[in-house]
Nucleic acid binder design. Structure first.
Length: 286
DNA sequence: ATCCAGGAAGTCG
DNA sequence: CGACTTCATGGA
């Protein structure tokens, strides 16, 4: 028997035990949200996409203007996909910045996911000086190597599971010189205390704390703040963002400077603006 | 072959 | 401090 619950929120969706259905109104594009660089555990198929997070998996597809999400834990994906937030006013605010007007229109369907901090920390340590297809491949191999096998896929390893890997294990999985960063940080996160405490910290203190992790520098810390801790004031500046700034201003600045300038300019929606910028800039060359 | 990929750590001045 | 070099790996 299916319990059908109608939940009145800014973003209206039907929600039962194994499906979420809602009208996207243009503010949830499945492919764009998966490909904008915030997550690496997804795949596209002819008629649907699949997304994995922790030990959860969902099937996502569009039917006209509706989005349908199937999962054995819909509550988890309501939270992950940020479905209780209305993105229309946020997108409109971003579009008021002249340099973002066109990018905001192209990125309307991007939502920021509320991901697991541990998974984000490990994933973005791997992302350093790496390319996205290879990042996806490495993360997939790590899941296969030590994540729990669920029906048809492998979960992301728990902190405890990952802490059992040594540097050579990571190296054998293709992590390259990041292997010792991963072994060190996995050990430090194994008991969950670091992340529990991190959740209580204000922005600047959290960033400082993240920088103590081996393999986490400024840019990766900003990604972790945004994608893992929901801190929208952070604006990760990578090579693509630095290019955006250079095109806009005509001067090439270091990533840390670019990050500060943009985060101050865009304030509490900086992270969303960053996704718009990254997605459209990277999309140009694909 | 050379360069690049969502950079960070190590070293030197 | 700031600037410069090194670090695996794989695809273009």
């Amino acid at each position: 028997m299916r319990l059908k619950v109608y939940i009145k929120k800014m973003s209206d969706y039907y929600f039962d035990n194994n499906r979420i259905i809602f009208d996207s109104r243009g503010y949830f594009d499945i492919a764009d949200s998966l490909e904008c660089g915030q997550t690496f555990r997804y795949a596209h198929h002819s008629n649907y996409s699949e997304l994995m997070s922790r030990d959860k998996k969902a099937i996502l597809y569009a039917d006209g203007g509706r989005v349908i999400i199937e999962s054995s834990d819909c509550g988890y994906f309501v939270r992950l996909l940020d479905l209780d937030r209305d993105y229309a006013p946020l997108n409109q605010r971003a579009a008021k910045f002249p340099e973002l007007r066109e990018r905001a229109a192209l990125s309307k369907g991007i939502r920021l996911f509320n991901q697991d901090p541990f998974e984000v920390i490990i994933s973005f340590i791997i992302s350093a000086n790496n390319n996205i297809p290879r990042i996806k491949k490495i993360i997939g191999k790590i899941c296969e190597f030590c994540g729990e096998k669920i029906d048809g896929f492998y979960a992301f390893p728990t902190p405890k599971q990952l802490s059992h890997l040594c540097e050579k294990d990571f190296s054998d999985l293709g992590c390259g010189y990041r292997s010792r960063y991963l072994a060190s940080t996995a050990a430090k996160l194994s008991d969950g205390y670091f992340i529990d405490n991190a959740n209580t910290l204000a922005g600047s203190a959290l960033r400082k704390e993240l920088l103590t992790l081996f393999g986490v520098g400024g840019k990766v810390a900003d990604c972790i703040m945004l994608f893992g801790f929901g801190r929208w004031e952070s604006f990760p500046a990578d090579t693509w963002i630095v290019k955006c700034y250079e095109n806009e201003i005509g001067i090439r600045e270091k990533a840390a400077v670019v990050s500060r300038i943009y985060s101050e300019r865009y304030g509490d929606i900086a992270g969303l603006c960053q996704q718009y910028m990254f997605f459209t800039e990277r999309g140009k060359s694909k």
